[in-house]
Amino acid sequence: MAGNKGRGRAAYSFNIEAVGFARGEKLPDVVLKPPPLFPDTDYKAVPLKTGEGEDYMRALKQELRETMKRMPYFIETPEEKQGDIERYSKNYMKIYKEEWVPDWRRLPRELMPRKKCKKVGPKSKKATDAGKVTSLTNTADVLKKIEQIQEKKNQSNRHKCNNSRKAGSKSRDKISSQKNDFHSECEDGPNREQREQENDYINSYFEDGDDFGADSDDNMDEATY
């Protein structure tokens, strides 16, 4: 730049007059901050269209918004339900919420609540049954596990165990649509297979363990949102 010293605008590689600045005119300051959040407008906005149709549509929109909140599709967050104060009006609103049973034929199987897939026939009887069965298999599980550990120690029929392990993991992959890397224990293999023969979906029931408490309450049996 040494050669340009004292030559004013020579820092620009083009003729500054071409963009509308006269010789010797001061250039505008460099903008260093973002534009204001609510910028001034030079022109006022035109008024909105009004008319019967517009008013009706607006009313429809407001009504739709209120109706949507009362539909079964509106899922409230659990925190919201507790709230600071128990309000009478809230109870009042809840009455209108209808039940919604999705058509499971149209949805991927994994979306079904787990309890639901257990039964096909009458609900109440099966629901209690289901509770019993799971607790039984639980104890059976433990027993079998102990047995297997013993077997492993003896290392007498390792071959057999391996076989069933493979089969178990294969069918698991097929059904639970996820690489569940947090479940790699092999002892579970044969039991899992047994259970799957009774029912296809049940294995996902035990997989993440966060819902063990849920199997005792009976009101979980209906898929109502």
Binding site: R65, M68, Y73, F74, I75, E76, T77, E80
Partner: peptide
């Protein structure tokens, strides 16, 4: 959020 709530 307005139509189906926060979770959805």
């Amino acid at each position: 959020q307005e139509h189906f709530g926060e979770i959805v």
